[in-house]
Design a protein around this nucleic acid. Sequence first.
DNA 1: ATAATTTATGAAATGCGTTTCAATGCAATA
DNA 2: TATTGCATTGAAACGCATTTCATAAATTAT
Lengths: 325, 325
Amino acid sequence: MANIREIAKLAGVSVATVSRVLNHYPYVKEEKRQAVWKAVEKLNYTKNINAVHLAKGKTSIIGVILPYVNHPYFSSIVDGISQEALRHGYHLLLFQTNYDVQKELEALEMLRVKQVDGLIICSRTISWEMLKLYQEDGPIILCEDTTGCEMSSVSIDHYEAFMLGMNYLIAKGHRKIGYCIGRTSGTNSERRDAAYRDALQNIDTVPREEWIFDRCLEIADGARVVKALLSMEDKPTALLVASDQVAAGIVLWGQKNGLQVPENLAIVSFDNHPIAEALGITTVDLPLLSMGQKAFQLIHDCFIGKTTTNQNEQLPVRLIERFSV
Amino acid sequence: MANIREIAKLAGVSVATVSRVLNHYPYVKEEKRQAVWKAVEKLNYTKNINAVHLAKGKTSIIGVILPYVNHPYFSSIVDGISQEALRHGYHLLLFQTNYDVQKELEALEMLRVKQVDGLIICSRTISWEMLKLYQEDGPIILCEDTTGCEMSSVSIDHYEAFMLGMNYLIAKGHRKIGYCIGRTSGTNSERRDAAYRDALQNIDTVPREEWIFDRCLEIADGARVVKALLSMEDKPTALLVASDQVAAGIVLWGQKNGLQVPENLAIVSFDNHPIAEALGITTVDLPLLSMGQKAFQLIHDCFIGKTTTNQNEQLPVRLIERFSV
DNA sequence: ATAATTTATGAAATGCGTTTCAATGCAATA
DNA sequence: TATTGCATTGAAACGCATTTCATAAATTAT
């Protein structure tokens, strides 16, 4: 495979001139420019991008850390990141972690070794302290509220979102409310839990731990929840469901097992995925695509030096009333 | 940032020895090994991975070309690729093309410039001829039947899958059958169309072009199909639906608009996504996760020199009977 | 006409780890 | 004791493009 020196030799110019031509810099005589392009074509030359990366000290790749690719919540975010990245000539390196700290660390290491110019963390298990150790290696954007930790972020106000759902249910007369969540740890989950408890406190009601369903991620988990509900003596009358997928599962498996929504169980879910519309589920719209886009924009602002301080952006949510309450 | 030469100097050894230590090669005295690690720690050294890539001539990154990340069909494949890649220490670079030939070409170019060691093409628009120009630059695996084009592939037999669905519908007495598809071009779609026509021919029935619904990708497209069906004088009694998502949309929007499945319309869909189970949709299971895994395995076989010729693997499908027919 | 710019161009340094090759030191075999 | 062979180690070459710096030539400004 030809390299830039061979091109230089064949074109009768220096490597510097070749580089200038290849990168469309000014100050090259037209004849030399021609000669270089001719040589490039003759030798079927292509840059070795790894040499470029080494020389430039950057790769135009940003890493995306997320637990699962195959989940609408995360692939929406990735979609958003991807769209913006494309517009700016960046590529995406995917790190599917399954919430494994070891894998998260490996991904972070990619920032140190300059495999990626920056990192967007869609969700994580690793601690903020640990993350901070990597801040000096390049920009990191978190998709969660980073209040109190001095890191950049774009986030959805999950407290507000849950509060919105809770108050809606309460206004509709519900008092026995539970919720379904993907996991109980993590900033986003903790914010939601706080809203849940605060909302209940507002109506002088104590939370019931058995009405909190953990590990609810996909449709099939809805079936599990339905089963659990059916075997309960004292059931909640309403559920906040942190994913439209799970909500869909609850509605559909509920139908088959005699747990009708909203007759026997009211549901407010989150995401506003098309499935919620199709099932008439009242949901809180979460701007996931925008969050991905914004995340890239923030990181890009760091690259172009537009931003040097930590940025924190909060995206608005809104409740979409349908027929599941 | 420290480099390997500084480590060598501090440790009082040659860079070759440092490299040996860093890469866990044998033949280094224990004392020197210690000295190197100590220097590494003292200078807080990390390899510059771009230099490694340049020197080794490979990146341990494989590119994944796909039209949309945010679609269960593709994210299942990516999930499979990702799982296997992880096991072998490879990373994934994502190229979301939206079926734009220009973007596909850019992704292919990444193989030439050695940004990626290999490429998995989940779906494409670009021609086989064009693709072949890049074969010399590294292994390329297609997720489609590549009969007649001498390229490696892992594929689902979409002809067989559609034929399975058609014969099932026909056995149930249906004669007026249409289908919904993501796009009409592409190998996979053409194979499906062929099966559709062959199956109809077998029962001496002529295909009805107006019963073929193009651009059916997501739940919302199901609503469109329902609407179109309702406005038809002469409706099909059954539909093959190339995506469980769309099928779900048809079932759910049909319910609201008085088009009951299976009473007014029988449906056999494809993928066997959890949503199909939840809705009781009869579907043909497509091993998408396995396809992704297998795709990576094939490409990996090329890397380790296990395979030098084109491989073509066909994965089996099976019909899962539920209640939509 | 002279000074001040601007245009052009190449040599050489830079970014940095891997790998080959030759050489030296030691131990085991003949 | 001589020889074969493995264990160790470093110098130097290699992969390759970018960028700085110095220089030279061509313009433009004064």
